[in-house]
Design a protein around this nucleic acid. Structure first.
Lengths: 150, 150
DNA sequence: CCCGATATTTCAATTATTTAACTATTAAAT
DNA sequence: ATTTAATAGTTAAATAATTGAAATATCGGG
């Protein structure tokens, strides 16, 4: 590929990913209750998919320090959406799970978010979405492998 | 499109965009000097592209309140990377520009970030990147228009 | 039993953000 | 021309997210 062409693509990628990321965050926020944040939504979403989690796992999934997870957990426990349970065999480990309230909140919110994404996705042909997501996932895999090598 | 298929695509999109966004942020951070943040980089990048900016414009581009821009501006002015200049005709307006130092920092950083993006982009065919970015830009336009209607 | 590793939390600091109130300045209306 | 609206930006108090270092508690091997 020509250097100039390559640089153009890089610039386009940087610009568009910046804008879409910002805008998507803003739109997701609109779908959440006033007192909930995007990060809290993503955390609950991740936990719900994985079932039982630990701080360590979440810290690695979210690429932050464990103390950041402790802080988020505290906020979500205070809100009654999450709970801690100590492992009886290895008492160092703390399991994190959604409470029933957390489950209910997430279910309600997931519906809204799905509708939101649907409203955009419907503007593309199935073929175009499929290709786009495939490339996106390929990128994700490249980034994932990078992590494992290091 | 079948409901089930649609839901699968939505889930895939949510998962992959979450991961790539997080990971990309982490990688960008690695390329920055210790005392700089991703947001600061994106702000300087945007300003450099636009030339002269105002708080109001930045707030709208970054989809945050103007006071958030004031705070970021303060930090960047303290670091000597940005400066404020009052409009002599309309004294309410404050113009924001990069200092020479800010310019130099950005130039150096942009090089690093370009190399970073390049290292991933090179794993795709020109055709695949092109299609991906085109769809991504189409999405950006849809999101942009949404804003203008509302 | 002791030592090093593991899992998590605590603490202090910084950044990013919001909302409401405030200052200053301009433009518009009567 | 004087009051009123609107506009541009800042300040202040609060919260969330984050980091890094130190602390606590527990486990496993020798």
């Amino acid at each position: 590929m020509h250097v100039e062409k390559l640089n153009q693509l890089i610039e386009r990628y940087l610009s568009v990913s910046f804008f879409v990321t910002k805008k998507a965050a803003a739109l997701v926020k609109c779908e959440l209750d006033e007192e909930m944040t995007n990060d809290q939504y993503y955390l609950l979403r991740y936990m719900s998919k994985r079932g039982v989690c630990t701080s360590t796992e979440l810290a690695s999934a979210f690429m932050v320090n464990k103390s950041a997870i402790t802080a988020m957990t505290n906020r979500l426990v205070d809100k009654g959406l999450m709970k801690r349970t100590r492992d009886e065999n290895d008492r160092r480990v703390v399991y994190l799970t959604l409470t029933e309230q957390g489950d209910a909140w997430l279910k309600k919110t997931e519906e809204r978010i799905h509708k939101l994404v649907e409203s955009f996705i419907m503007k593309f042909s199935e073929q175009e979405i499929e290709s786009f997501i495939e490339t996106y996932e390929k990128l994700a895999n490249i980034l994932q492998e990078l992590e494992e090598k290091a």
